[in-house]
Amino acid sequence: MGFNSCLEHKEFRNDYHKMMVTLLATSAWMSDKMKCFLANEDITLQQFNILKILQENEKPLSILQIRQELIDKMSDASRIVDRLILKKLVKKQVCSTDKRLVDISLDKEGEELICRINQKMDQLDANCEHLNKEELNQLMNLLNKMRGDAKVAATETQHA
């Protein structure tokens, strides 16, 4: 039974409740698609997020800096980084300016993995290909607005 059929049989208090359940179901659906996509490379969604954070920053980051950029704030960044070190995807070095801290950066194998994944991202994008550009922008604007980020939503509407 798919997500849509599960939602059809539920009773909702009101439209806000229905929207929240639909949003959670969609999030779980997309998370599942991403997990399957990343399983081919033997990494988890949380590990991928840390690798992307490290790739997007030009200098090594501390665990605290990584944690601040994570989408899932409940993730145990230290434990995930330790697993990435075991997989030889990232490296840990003592910070040159503060010996109490450690810097985390991508290792060569981590860079190669991110490049491989980036080359196949269109496979993941295909899950949303039934939405046109206008619908995508509208959805992103509404989600930003729902989170209270009306400034971002207004700016994105102007650039659409």
Score class of each variant (00 low, 15 high):
12 F>K: 03
12 F>I: 08
12 F>S: 08
14 N>F: 03
15 D>M: 07
15 D>Q: 05
17 H>C: 10
19 M>S: 05
19 M>P: 00
20 M>G: 10
20 M>A: 10
21 V>N: 08
23 L>T: 06
23 L>M: 15
23 L>Y: 12
24 L>H: 12
29 W>F: 14
29 W>S: 09
32 D>Q: 07
32 D>E: 13
34 M>Q: 10
35 K>R: 10
39 A>C: 09
42 D>V: 12
42 D>P: 06
42 D>W: 13
45 L>C: 07
46 Q>D: 15
47 Q>G: 11
49 N>I: 05
52 K>M: 12
53 I>G: 08
53 I>N: 00
53 I>K: 06
54 L>W: 11
57 N>H: 15
57 N>T: 00
58 E>M: 13
63 I>C: 10
63 I>R: 14
63 I>F: 14
64 L>F: 11
65 Q>P: 02
66 I>M: 07
66 I>L: 05
66 I>V: 07
66 I>H: 04
67 R>V: 02
70 L>S: 01
71 I>F: 12
71 I>T: 06
72 D>H: 02
72 D>S: 07
75 S>D: 02
75 S>M: 00
78 S>W: 07
81 V>N: 01
83 R>I: 04
83 R>N: 14
83 R>G: 08
84 L>S: 02
85 I>R: 13
85 I>D: 15
88 K>Y: 13
88 K>V: 15
89 L>P: 02
91 K>F: 14
93 Q>G: 11
93 Q>E: 15
94 V>I: 08
95 C>T: 01
96 S>L: 15
98 D>C: 08
99 K>R: 11
103 D>I: 00
103 D>W: 12
103 D>T: 03
104 I>W: 08
106 L>H: 02
107 D>Q: 09
108 K>M: 11
108 K>A: 04
110 G>C: 04
111 E>N: 08
112 E>H: 09
112 E>A: 06
112 E>D: 08
